[in-house]
Design a protein around this nucleic acid. Structure first.
Lengths: 218, 218
DNA sequence: CCTACCGATCGGTAGG
DNA sequence: CCTACCGATCGGTAGG
């Protein structure tokens, strides 16, 4: 049930994005999709506006009709991906009761967002490695913090309730999120296991631990 | 004791690299260090040979006296980092007795390699995202596989011995390695926690699990 | 949206 | 290692 709720939320948000566009904005959406794919494959500085224009079969100058410059195009992809992730995951987690269930829904919904917007995720993941500040970077960092703090809060709640061991919530959250972020390095969307199925395994491993008898740990 | 062994192995390898160079190769080493830092900060396509030459206070053309081209310079950094990692970690793990101890030494030694060669690690981590094949990429993938299979073998051994739960060794290995790989996103070498200390926490979390009573999992 | 163009910068080379 | 240079490509703009 939690899965259905999450899935519904993801779909709704996608449709909203589509429905909010009108007329010639279809073209802008198409340009964003092409840019998304190229950025995810070649990175920001490895993708030229000529590459994007060529795949869209327009001139490079025409890109400047839709976007003020290269960075704005990239920023739009990153911020919209992050915004959708935070909103969708937060909403889905509200329907879970226990901390353990909240962690599971958080991870499952994240996996669904990843699956649905894989290229945007990958493009975003290498964003803002630069040291320079910008309003877009500040906003992205804030969204990322909000997202991570949501998970840490669930872990903290679980510890307080005695359901989780007394680990560092930030560290435990990093273990969980790192496992999802690592997926883009090896997981194929055309493989046997869907992203949510993989993440389910990750969560089971981290929740249950690797040791058969944790008490007997050296 | 396992920690001391691993640390010694790391040091030895570094000295070998340094000792193997002679005369004007000091310059080459300096160029590699500068390139390493810039690649880690700006990525491959975001770093120009002019940037590197400028920081080294030589002309760009002089770089071609030391390296055949930009890609060879990058490739050297990536392959040497990976080679040192595999060799050091493999050797360190031989001195561990149980599967659990082997996993711990694997992770601890990896953390020490990361700490000692942070920029090389970061530069390498985004390498070969491209789809094109090359002898260097093939070699890097082989080294990476060797490294990952080492950890998976330890996990498999632990499961066979009944010390670990019957999880998928590949998935469990990914959880452990992803946590280390994620460090470059947030961990500061000037922070309170050293890389090995952080990884110690990661390992404790994954080995022991998040749940207080795993049997009571929903 | 296009044509036509800009200065800046890219990786790389000739010749010493 | 340097001077001096190359063609190609970069993001971006003027003017329509």
């Amino acid at each position: 049930m939690a899965t259905n709720t999450a899935r519904k939320a993801v779909r709704k948000l996608t449709l909203q994005t589509t429905a909010a566009t009108s007329r010639g904005d279809d073209r802008q959406l198409q340009l964003l999709e092409i840019a998304c794919r190229l950025f995810s494959e070649r990175g920001f500085s490895g993708t030229s506006l000529r590459d994007i224009a060529e795949e869209a079969q327009i001139t490079k100058a025409a890109l400047y009709y839709h976007f003020p410059n290269k960075e704005a195009l990239f920023t739009k992809i990153v911020l919209e991906s992050l915004q959708a992730l935070v909103t969708t995951v937060r909403e889905a987690c509200e329907h879970a009761a226990t901390p353990e269930e909240k962690v599971r829904v958080f991870m499952r919904t994240t996996a669904e967002c990843y699956q649905q917007n894989r290229e945007g995720w990958i493009a975003s993941s290498n964003a803002f490695r630069t040291h320079e500040e910008s309003p877009a970077k500040t906003r992205a960092v804030a969204l990322r913090d909000e997202y991570e703090n949501l998970l840490r809060g669930f872990i903290r709640d679980g510890i307080k309730a005695g359901q989780f061991r007394a680990v560092d919530p930030a560290m435990a959250g990093r273990v969980l999120l790192a496992s999802i972020n690592s997926m883009s390095r090896w997981h194929s969307p055309r493989g046997k296991l869907s992203a949510p199925m993989v993440v389910e395994q990750f969560v089971d491993i981290v929740l249950g631990g690797l040791l058969a008898q944790p008490g007997a740990a050296t």
